[in-house]
Design a protein around this nucleic acid. Structure first.
Lengths: 220, 220
DNA sequence: GTCTATAAATGGATAGAC
DNA sequence: GTCTATCCATTTATAGAC
């Protein structure tokens, strides 16, 4: 349970040897968590010696931190540019669907970050992973608030609450779709795109202002 | 990462010595996960010797299984009786709000079960925890389906999808409310009851059939 | 940068006294 | 039922050759 309260990113890339170690470590840490993975395992699967791992990373915790930093960089990079289209519903849809696609497209990074957020211990300071999450969240809240200001969305609910629901729906799906797939009534997880579209439609339906019946679903 | 594919519960209670070990193990496993907790740690915090732990539980895995079984029993017990009130919206509300309350009222058990579900490895069989989840889920899907049959809820969406959203909203809140509490726009998590009510209202709004404007929110 | 060999500590688990 | 003492495998991490 490493701490990582600092954002201080090392400026440049890694040597090729260090890179394969880091990639393998990312995969294993994401799948099994920090404690379940040993340096031995990482070294073996990366086809290097254990000592070589410690040559590139001063400790297991330092390796984990490097992995997490890399995951955060990939994540913020994947949603760098979000240009508004003017239509709030479309912007929300773009954000919503691309966020799930980003997680499914890079599950290792997503799992790492989500794990780090949930695992955060007691009275501990804010972590790097939480910074990323907060960034996501604030952007989404802004969109919802804009929709309310324009009168497209009802003003009777907290914009942060709606944003929270949207984010939660995606993250919950991402973390559980393997399990829910073999659930009796869970046939609806056949395709993530379909899930995305249907959930968004349901959520938006609950948020739209009354007289605006002419909004068409983004996927149709 | 124990397996636990069997439901076979040992019939009766435990001796008092074993009970304090199990309680402490439950707390620690819930907070830190299986691999991060050592028998040493459990023994120390329970004020017994390490050997005593192995006297009561044949292995670390057996202890974990006993802990998980206890958590599942507590959980299914907490929502044993759910008698329908006739009004679908009220039934949904009862289910929704009491589920979150149950998790918050017994966070250790809830965390254990959720962790076990998410952590489930590759092509592995169904676990005890998943049985509990499936039970929950099926009951909720039935309610939604009934609401659609009565015409209270729109028929244009998959009832399992809506149930999934409800469950997800609660679980996501439960797992993240400590983190989201110190989020900039996250002031809405001030009180779980308020979160419950507002989210339910938002979700129901998206699911209600059109002409039925006379449904009042359950909390108001 | 990469390796073999090894140190020092901790993990799960057992033996046997009380 | 509970303990101390011990076993052995595995862990993180280091030393030093190439």
């Amino acid at each position: 349970m490493p701490q990582l309260n600092k954002l201080s990113a090392p400026p440049q890339g890694l040597s090729s040897g260090a890179q394969v170690i880091l990639d393998m470590a990312k995969r294993l840490f994401a799948e099994q968590g920090f404690d379940a993975v040993s340096i031995n395992q990482i070294a073996r699967q990366a086809n290097v010696s254990k000592a070589n791992v410690f040559h590139h990373f001063s400790s297991k915790e330092a390796l984990y931190l490097a992995v997490l930093r890399s995951a955060c960089e990939e994540t913020v990079g994947s949603l760098a540019e979000t240009h508004s289209s003017g239509r709030v519903a479309d912007d929300l849809w773009t954000f919503f669907s691309s966020q799930l696609a980003a997680m499914l497209g890079n599950p290792a990074s997503a799992k790492l970050i989500l794990r780090e957020i949930v695992e955060s211990k007691d009275g501990r300071e804010r972590t790097l992973a939480e910074e990323v999450f907060a960034e996501y969240f604030s952007r989404l809240v802004g969109m919802v608030r804009a929709g309310q200001a324009q009168g497209v969305l009802r003003r009777s609910f907290d914009p942060a609450l709606f944003a929270y629901l949207m984010l939660g729906a995606n993250i919950f799906f991402f973390e559980n779709h393997k399990v829910t797939a073999h659930l009796a009534e869970g046939g609806f997880v056949r395709a993530p795109e379909r899930y995305s579209r249907d959930v968004f439609q349901l959520l938006l339906q609950g948020a739209l202002a009354d007289p605006e019946a002419d909004h068409q679903a983004p996927g149709s």
